[in-house]
């Protein structure tokens, strides 16, 4: 099967001006600009088969969003061969634009002052969606996302999570085959994150759409993606199965404890690496493989008010591992 997305040796360089802090720095930058080339993406290659769900990981500024923007034709690549659905994205051919979507958790297309359905109607006309297909898609999205009454409320009166559901619906009305999702769950509470995640999985299963997802939440990637691509400083560091990456990158779990009195904190170091402890709140790192056993031992020996076991944030893990010089190669 031919690839839906194929990227060969993509590079995107920006020229940015630098300025030192303070008024003096600003004045100097105003009169004599110093420019520097930033290599946001530098020699990245990968390809996706139709229907694949891939997680894009990397610290802030790694080049994830830049790559997605090149794939959606917003940015012209500095060099490289990029094909999405057989098109060169930055030519922005209508046939291409009709077949993919880009959802950005940080930016919204919904009209702020009007109910979401007004934006939907504009997208219906923009994408020339026939009335029948529109009604059918809207019904399906309504079922999956439980939009119901949200569609008739002014967007400015919706909660962040409600708005994200409507954003997703607006972005999917034209039944795109390729979904580029940049932080679609950012700022949402856990329940809503799960809803959005389930929806993406269901949409992918029903329509066989290809999905690329970036997220700060490891759980998003865990739940949705078998394959991950890790980039850092514009370079590709890992492309492969998620499970081996998670073990490689996050060999520990984070335990957060609330204690009834400070004295107990002293003994915590026996259970794992003590990250922080202010007396009543403590954070521990315990090896992933022994998490269950450690939990049992901990609860048996120490009186706690509350305890949670979490995966560390993706960005932390990636930073830790990369800083530790661990070899992570496909």
């Amino acid at each position: 099967m031919p690839a839906d997305v194929s990227v060969i040796d993509l590079a995107k360089h920006y020229r940015v001006h630098e300025k030192d802090a303070g008024l003096k720095g600003s004045l100097r930058a105003f009169f004599a600009r110093r420019y520097r080339t930033v290599k946001a993406v530098d020699g990245v290659s990968f390809s996706l088969a139709p229907g694949e769900r891939v997680g894009f990981l990397g610290p802030n500024g790694a080049g994830k969003t830049t790559t997605l923007k090149v794939l959606s034709g917003l940015l012209h690549p500095t060099s490289g061969e990029i094909q999405v659905l057989g098109h060169t994205p930055h030519r922005r051919e209508s046939a291409f634009l009709r077949r993919f979507t880009l959802v950005m958790g940080q930016k919204q297309q919904l009209l702020w002052d009007l109910p979401a359905v007004e934006t939907f109607l504009i997208n219906k006309a923009v994408y020339e969606i026939p009335a029948e297909a529109y009604a059918q898609t809207l019904k399906e999205l309504d079922d999956l996302l439980e939009l119901g009454p949200l569609l008739r409320k002014q967007v400015r009166k919706l909660s962040l999570g409600e708005r994200m559901k409507c954003e997703l619906a607006a972005a999917l009305l034209h039944r795109p085959q390729v979904l580029l999702l940049d932080e679609p769950t950012i700022g949402l509470d856990v329940t809503m994150q799960v809803r959005i995640r389930d929806f993406i999985a269901e949409y992918n299963a029903r329509h066989g759409a290809t999905v690329i997802l970036t997220s700060h939440y490891m759980a998003d990637v865990t739940a949705l993606c078998e394959r991950v691509i890790v980039i850092d400083k514009g370079h590709l560091l890992y492309d492969g199965d998620f499970r081996s990456l998670a073990e490689r990158l996050a060999p520990y779990k984070v335990v957060k404890l609330r204690l009834p009195h400070p004295a107990l904190g002293e003994r915590l170091a026996d259970f794992g690496e003590l990250v922080s402890n202010d007396g009543l709140n403590a954070v521990l790192r315990v090896p992933r493989a022994r998490a269950g056993e450690t939990a049992a031992r901990l609860l048996g020996q120490i009186e706690v008010d509350d305890v949670t076991f979490e995966d560390p944030p993706v960005e932390d893990v990636i930073r830790d591992v990369f800083a530790g010089g661990l070899e992570a190669r496909a």
Binding site: K69, S72, G73, L74, R92, S94, L97, R98, T101, L102, M104, K107, Q108, Q109, V126, Y127
Partner: peptide, 15 residues
Amino acid sequence: RTGTFDFTLLKPVDS
């Protein structure tokens, strides 16, 4: 300035 011009470019209509 804010980057929401993205949405204009994503649409299959003359920008």
